[in-house]
């Protein structure tokens, strides 16, 4: 898929995987993708669709990292990343773990297991949500395998299922 462009190439990534649900006390995630489809409309390359989890998903083979979806997203859950770094956090929930857990099935709760696991000091919990510094990341996926919330993904679908 990389043949058409020079590496390292960038792609948009939606940092939400659509596990949002309304909790018992009425809480729900206010950070995630709301399936407004503004990104879908903004994308000149038809690279974005709303997937079966009800969230936007980017087809990296079509994406050119033009950034229009990033600008269009009212929730600011889309960012550009280096497509070759296939380990990604797909959550943007910045609420405290106890709340984030209630709001979503696959939310990052800021537990820090990924941070302790990472050999490369590439993943850190920032405002209750894991963030990968891609320059440091060795794409091993140990964080994805260890994440108790399945909030971190191998975008290739090898180490984790692609949801």
């Amino acid at each position: 898929m990389a043949a058409k462009r020079q590496v390292p190439y960038m792609s948009a990534l939606v940092a939400c995987n659509g596990g949002c649900r309304e909790g018992k006390d009425g809480q729900s995630c206010s950070y995630g993708c709301v399936a407004c489809s503004l990104c879908v409309a903004a994308c000149p390359f038809s690279a974005i669709t709303i997937n079966e989890n009800g969230v936007a998903e980017v087809d990296e083979s079509k994406c050119t990292a033009c950034g229009r979806c990033v600008e269009a997203c009212p929730q600011q859950v889309i960012h550009l990343h280096e497509a070759g770094n296939f380990i990604a956090v797909k959550c943007s929930n910045r609420d405290k773990g106890v709340d984030a857990r209630k709001q979503c099935d696959v939310s990052c709760i800021g537990c820090g297991i990924c941070e302790k696991t990472c050999t490369a000091a590439a993943i850190h919990v920032v405002e209750n949500c894991a963030v990968i510094e891609e320059k440091n990341c060795l794409s091993c996926g140990m964080c994805a395998v260890k994440c108790p919330r399945h909030a971190i993904y191998d975008l290739r679908g090898v180490l984790t299922p692609v949801r």
Binding site: T119, A120, L138, C140, G141, M142, V145, R156, V158, L159
Partner: peptide, 26 residues
């Protein structure tokens, strides 16, 4: 055995994977 070095890299379904990362059950 911590995902850093790459000396245990194998190919799974056409993709390189460090063998110290996945559990066999997965």
């Amino acid at each position: 055995s911590e995902g850093a070095c790459g000396a245990c890299t194998v190919i799974i379904e056409g993709e390189t994977v460090k063998a110290c990362v996945p559990d066999t059950d997965s």
